[in-house]
Design a protein around this nucleic acid. Structure first.
Length: 275
DNA sequence: ATACGCCCCTGGTGGC
DNA sequence: TGCCACCAGGGGCGTA
């Protein structure tokens, strides 16, 4: 969102190309027409959604899915027009000061919709979202209330955007490790003392990742093309078989394990996240 | 209400 | 070199 904001805020979109019918869902009718000629007033983020406010009373709702990214480059630099659109660049906008902003998404799990600016949070995709993890209102008591009564594993509960909004698989694994909580524990059993350990670790993990520019898997880059580097700071994610960074090593600790929960990989230290 | 697969896609990797 | 199985930052939806 910040990458988009730097290039788009205050600018007029002089051209918009929509190259397919939709991604996860069909694009809204008239998307290109809504974008063309609009001035970008500002941005906000909610959970994993980016909201781009336009003059005229509408906002663009963007989700990058698993493989989506924004591509920002200067019109004419290295002759991008001659090169044509990037691979899987499904939507492209051009600003009145000569920048090209593209939505690239190979797997096409991303989404774009339009929503009235005065009712952004009433959109069906935003209406049920839980608290923002970096908000000061997100406290152990709030998390405990969200976990209470749920028998689902804490891993799944933290991925449930209704309980806390914006955590993905990487950061849930990392936060659970840092808090020393077994991913398989019932959510309800983590309320209270567990939540008190978990909330600060969730916040710290996210803050460190944002400061590092995110985690670059495969080809994810920030809009300016810079690689995030938080992947080097992962303590457990993607480290199956490696030594736990907080343990003395074998035989005391067998190393990082990988299990599958609800179809997604979970990485953990069996010694520090026991029970 | 809650919980669990399934599915939407492309592409990279590693084994044979 | 080719083929194939498996895996991947998400999350809505249908079904039990």
């Amino acid at each position: 969102m910040r990458g988009l904001q730097a290039r788009l805020q205050g600018r007029v979109i002089v051209r918009a190309e929509v190259r397919r019918e939709g991604l996860r869902w069909p694009f809204p009718d008239g998307l290109a027409a809504h974008l063309t000629g609009a001035r970008v007033l500002g941005f906000r983020r909610r959970a994993k959604y980016i909201l781009m406010r336009l003059d005229g009373g509408g906002s663009v709702l963007l989700h990058l899915g698993m493989s989506g990214r924004m591509l920002i480059r200067r019109r004419g630099a290295n002759d991008p027009d001659a090169a044509g659109p990037a691979l899987h660049e499904h939507v492209e906008m051009e600003t009145d000061d000569g920048w090209l902003v593209g939505f690239v998404d190979p797997r096409r799990f991303g989404s774009i919709d339009l929503v009235p600016t005065d009712a952004e949070d009433a959109h069906r995709l935003l209406a049920g979202l839980g608290p923002e993890p970096l908000d000061e209102l997100f406290t152990p008591a709030v998390l405990s209330a969200g976990l209470a009564g749920r028998r689902t594993p804490i891993k799944a509960a933290l991925l449930d955007q209704r309980i806390v909004a914006g955590l993905g698989n990487i950061y849930v694994c990392e936060a659970l490790f840092r808090a020393g909580i077994a991913p398989s524990r019932h959510a309800a059993d983590v309320a209270g003392a567990g939540a008190a350990r978990l909330v600060p670790e969730i916040k710290a993990t996210l803050q460190e990742a944002i400061a590092a520019g995110g985690s670059s898997l495969r080809d994810y880059v920030q809009p300016d093309g810079e690689l995030g580097y938080f992947q080097h700071a992962w303590r457990v994610y993607g480290r199956e078989g490696e030594r736990c960074p907080a343990c003395p090593g074998p035989p005391a600790c067998p190393g990082i394990a990988r299990v599958v929960q609800a179809g997604r990989s979970t990485f953990l230290c069996p010694r520090l996240q026991a029970g």
